[in-house]
Computed example of a mutant assay.
Amino acid sequence: MSNLTAVGDRDSWRCWLCDEPVDPDASVNSDRGPSVDLGMAKPKKGAPAVERLAHRACNTRKGAVTPVVPWSPDLFVVDPAPIVATVERLGRKGGREVVARCPSRQDADAAAAWLVDRLSRFAPDRAFTTQVEPGGGQFLLVLRTA
């Protein structure tokens, strides 16, 4: 297992699950204190586990199940795809996937910018781009592997 400080410095002291700051000086027994999580997916046989920084409460709540990473409540998105499953699927097979619908171009552009920013911390080892496409009176937010 890596040193907590090394993992925290690498992850800029942000929880990979909730994307909120983690206080490096907080007690590891505090709900908002730092902990090291083994990431979002089981590594392939022989590959090292990816350790990520998380709040102790976020890590405990996730347990041994696939985490749920929420979309920002400030976004106006309809039928948002689950972020973790989408990232894992695109990481395995590549390509592109529609991840949400938005009622206006402005909403879709805001969601696209937020998603790219969030994924830069959530899955820093993978490169993603977004695209907004008109369709059926709405705007589709497309995520693709770069």
Rank of each mutant, 00 (worst) to 15 (best):
G63N: 02
D19W: 01
L115M: 07
V84K: 09
V99K: 07
G8P: 01
P82S: 15
D19V: 10
G91E: 04
T60L: 09
A57S: 11
P43S: 08
R92V: 03
R96W: 05
R52V: 07
C58L: 05
K45Q: 12
A112C: 00
C18M: 02
S30N: 14
V22Y: 03
S72K: 11
A113V: 10
R61S: 15
C58T: 02
C15Q: 11
L38M: 07
K42V: 09
S27Q: 04
K93M: 13
S27W: 05
F76A: 15
C58S: 07
V68Y: 12
W114I: 05
T86F: 06
V28A: 15
Q106W: 01
H55I: 03
K93F: 09
P82I: 12
P103H: 10
R10C: 04
E88A: 13
R52A: 07
R56I: 03
D11C: 02
R121W: 07
G8M: 05
L119F: 00
L75P: 11
D37L: 00
L17Q: 10
V78Q: 15
R118Y: 08
L119Q: 02
L119T: 02
R89L: 14
R101C: 10
R52Q: 09
P48C: 03
R105F: 12
T66G: 10
D25Q: 15
E97F: 04
R101Q: 15
D117A: 11
C18W: 08
K42A: 13
R10D: 06
A41S: 13
A41K: 06
R121Y: 03
A47G: 09
D31P: 14
E88G: 09
A112I: 00
A57F: 04
S35N: 07
V28P: 14
R14I: 04
G46N: 01
V36H: 03
K93H: 14
L119Y: 00
R32H: 10
V84T: 13
R96A: 13
S12I: 06
C18D: 02
A108W: 02
R32Q: 13
R92P: 01
G39I: 00
